[in-house]
Simulated assay, not measured.
Amino acid sequence: MYELKIALRQVLSRKRQTLFAILAVALAVAVITVMMAMLSGFQDELVTASIENNPHIVISPQNEDEEFIHLYRLTSSRIAEKEGVLAVSPKYLGQAALEYRDNAEGVSLQGIDPVAEENVMRVSEDVIDGDLMALVHTRHGILLGNVLAENLEVKVGDRVNAVFPGSQTTSFRVVGLIHTGTTVDEVIAYARLESVQGFFNQPGVVSTIGVRVSDPYQADAIASSIERETGLNAVSWSEANAEILGLLETQMIFINIFYLLIYGIAGFGIANTLITIVAQRTREIGILKAMGASQRSIMIVFLFQSLVLGAIGLIIGTFLGYITIVALQNYPIEVPEEMYFGLQTLPLEVEPLNFLYAAFFAFIVNIISGIYPARKAAKLDPVKAIESA
Rank of each mutant, 00 (worst) to 15 (best):
V184W: 00
F361E: 10
A240P: 02
P382G: 12
Y2I: 10
G130T: 05
Y100S: 12
V34L: 13
F361W: 14
R14C: 05
S238Q: 14
R173F: 06
I255V: 14
A362F: 04
T180C: 09
L245A: 11
N54G: 08
L303T: 13
G141N: 08
E81R: 15
R78E: 14
G210M: 07
F268Y: 12
G141C: 10
I112T: 04
T75H: 05
A149T: 08
A389Q: 09
T276I: 09
Y2N: 13
I32V: 11
V350N: 06
Q110E: 13
V365I: 15
G84M: 07
I277N: 02
I255M: 13
F341A: 09
V196S: 07
Q251R: 10
P114T: 08
A21S: 15
T18D: 09
S388I: 09
T273E: 06
G141Q: 09
R281W: 01
N151G: 05
D381F: 05
R375M: 13
R375V: 15
E64G: 05
A37C: 09
F302A: 10
K379N: 15
P332I: 07
I333H: 03
V58N: 05
E66F: 05
D102N: 14
L309C: 07
T250I: 13
H56I: 12
R122G: 06
M1Q: 06
D158K: 01
V147H: 07
R16L: 11
